[in-house]
Design a protein around this nucleic acid. Structure first.
Lengths: 148, 148
DNA sequence: TTAAATGCAAAGAATTTGCATAACA
DNA sequence: TGTTATGCAAATTCTTTGCATTTAA
């Protein structure tokens, strides 16, 4: 049950003074209905399935505008292209350096660290923009077992 | 007191079967003696101050090889180029989204989170590759005060 | 009817690669 | 003397920009 429907998001755009175009509505639709962590290129491909003339620059410009309006955020899961999702679904990511598996971090996983950073450094954590890397359970087990 | 001298690192290269060239030694020297978080381009500029003919691709290839040998690691502090440092000095980074300030994360700041990730997900954290973003004390204070 | 969004081509930043030459071991 | 590393140019990848045209409000 996605909390944000396309129509709700469209309303949010209009409130922000942005226009609602075919391409823009499609980008939102793909973000609401599509896969979890699409790159701009994947978004483009899916949008083009419905509107073949939409251009990459349009998608990038839309994502930029949607980000400015607080509707979308982008995350870097590793090297390679950024991934995009709805701001309402913002969450931390754990990515395995070995196999590339991406885990959604439980909401409270950053909690203790956030408190420590706040208390000791005054730093307010917003740990959503970059993934935190490491080794997933399977790869960690393999690394421990297969000692050369 | 840097634990790694250039000569120690050079020895590490030879052990790994790599050759020691002028360019390579200079890259190491700059990493040992230079600023904290140089980008490849900054490294190149500093290297060129001593050996003007060294090329960007050489620096990139050296950094890649040094990383493969476990001597160097690179970190992404934000958008823009990667930054490089000695693996022995690996540490987490906190970067302010507002002003760009970079803080070195205290060694134990990730500790609780690492334990949580291990216990709950089996995930072994190695949180050095990407910075964790947020707001530094000054910008956080400003954000709280200047409520529009 | 006018400011915003689009399509297109071209530029941009950061990094990588192919290949002939040079130089470490 | 045989790899390995280098210099150079050119290619790649992801993203941004300039500009004439179209379109939503």
């Amino acid at each position: 049950m996605p909390l944000n429907t396309v129509e709700e998001l469209v309303a949010q755009l209009r409130e922000g003074g942005a226009r609602v175009t075919t391409a823009r509505r499609l980008v939102l639709t793909v973000l609401v209905e599509g896969s979890q962590h699409p790159t701009a290129e994947e978004l483009l491909a899916t949008v083009r399935a419905r509107a073949p003339d939409v251009h990459a620059s349009t998608v990038y410009r839309n994502l930029e505008e949607l980000e400015r309006l607080g509707v979308v955020v982008h995350t870097h899961l590793g090297h390679g292209p950024a991934t995009y999702h709805l701001a309402s679904e913002a969450h931390g990511h754990l990515v395995c350096e070995s196999c590339g598996a991406t885990l959604e971090a439980p909401r409270d996983l950053f909690e203790d660290m956030a408190q420590g950073a706040k208390r000791r450094l005054g730093f307010v954590l917003r740990p959503y923009h970059f993934a935190v890397l490491g080794l997933c359970a399977a790869c960690a087990a393999r690394a421990t077992t297969a000692q050369p």
